[in-house]
Amino acid sequence: MNAPRYNVYSEIAQLPTNGIHDICVAIGVFDAVHLGHQAIIRELISRARAYQATPVVITFDPLPPTIVNPELGVRRLLTLEHRYKLLSELGVEAIVCLPFTAEFAQRSPDEFCMDLFECPGLAVKALCVGRRWRFGAGASGDIEFLSRFIQQRQKSVEIVAIPELYRDHERISTTRIRNSIARGDFVCAKKLLGREYSLWGPVSKGRGIAGNVLHYPTANLDVSGMVVPPAGIYAGKACLQGKSLPGIIYLGSSPTFNQNESDPILEIHLFDFSQQIYGQYIEVFFLKFIREERKFPSAAMLIRQIEQDIFEAKRYHQQQGDSAHGLS
């Protein structure tokens, strides 16, 4: 298993006990690590270099809306590990992921500030947040509150408020990206994310239907609780150990086999690929929608349709110049 490792802690106080003392910190949920989030992290890295401090992100899990407003049914864009991966790739050296519970949601801004700025052995040199960032019970804390707290405590902390970014005259936000992906608008998602939309994680064991019944083995990703595109068949690719592998994606509830899963199933069949990769981490990209999901009267009819779907996906890859992957 090629499981990555990150410097992740569950309490702020664990930083100094692990040799991290002078820090610059960015705070936020960062479920997307979109262009706006990336701007915050760039400032964090810049300040950390200037102060010769460790760049640290404080984030939260589960997503705060799932605790504060569970009726909204908010789903995540990134698994927690994917969030860690993207933040680390941007230069973050340590991550504190605080458990966001109902009790935590009721903590006052003062309590949070005490944990951060009065932690023994820890010196915060700079704090980078989005200009609209709020914290504490009822979102009662803001940048002005932080400034007052720091002044009252006679702390020397630079507060860096990052302005919001806009694309197409609209603010970049995680909600906007969730809506784009839910309707299958990958062009809009890429514009807001600053990268191709993808799902990343370890390959899990599936139901055995794709290989044993349909004779098209697949790699499966667990997407429970995730925002995903509309159900259907897509031309796609997977990145595995630095290699890009073309294939075809199925995303849906497997109605032909009466599965009716509450969370969709994601499977990718990789062309001309037969390696055993259970537990290996792959990144799956949706490239082109081929057709909607539908129920077939029999497995034989589904297999015939899969053959046509694969033909369409291979033709797409050829048009994109992927013939080097054996798609001719």
Results as ranks from 00 to 15, higher is better:
187 V>H: 12
187 V>P: 00
187 V>Q: 14
189 A>I: 10
189 A>C: 07
190 K>S: 14
190 K>N: 11
190 K>Y: 09
190 K>W: 03
191 K>W: 03
191 K>M: 13
193 L>D: 09
193 L>A: 05
194 G>I: 02
194 G>E: 00
196 E>Y: 02
196 E>L: 10
196 E>R: 12
196 E>D: 15
196 E>W: 04
197 Y>A: 13
198 S>Q: 05
198 S>Y: 06
198 S>K: 00
198 S>I: 02
199 L>H: 03
200 W>Y: 14
200 W>T: 15
200 W>F: 13
201 G>E: 09
201 G>M: 07
201 G>K: 08
203 V>R: 03
204 S>G: 12
205 K>L: 13
205 K>R: 15
205 K>W: 11
205 K>Y: 13
205 K>Q: 15
206 G>Y: 01
206 G>V: 06
206 G>K: 03
206 G>P: 07
207 R>I: 04
207 R>M: 10
207 R>F: 14
208 G>S: 06
208 G>K: 09
209 I>A: 00
209 I>W: 01
209 I>F: 02
210 A>P: 02
211 G>N: 12
211 G>I: 04
211 G>R: 14
212 N>F: 00
212 N>A: 14
213 V>A: 06
213 V>T: 14
213 V>M: 11
214 L>W: 01
215 H>W: 00
216 Y>F: 14
216 Y>T: 12
217 P>D: 05
217 P>F: 02
217 P>E: 01
218 T>S: 03
218 T>I: 04
218 T>Y: 05
218 T>F: 08
219 A>N: 10
220 N>F: 05
220 N>L: 01
222 D>K: 10
222 D>A: 09
223 V>Y: 13
223 V>M: 07
224 S>H: 08
224 S>C: 09
226 M>V: 04
227 V>T: 11
227 V>M: 10
228 V>G: 08
229 P>T: 08
229 P>L: 06
229 P>F: 08
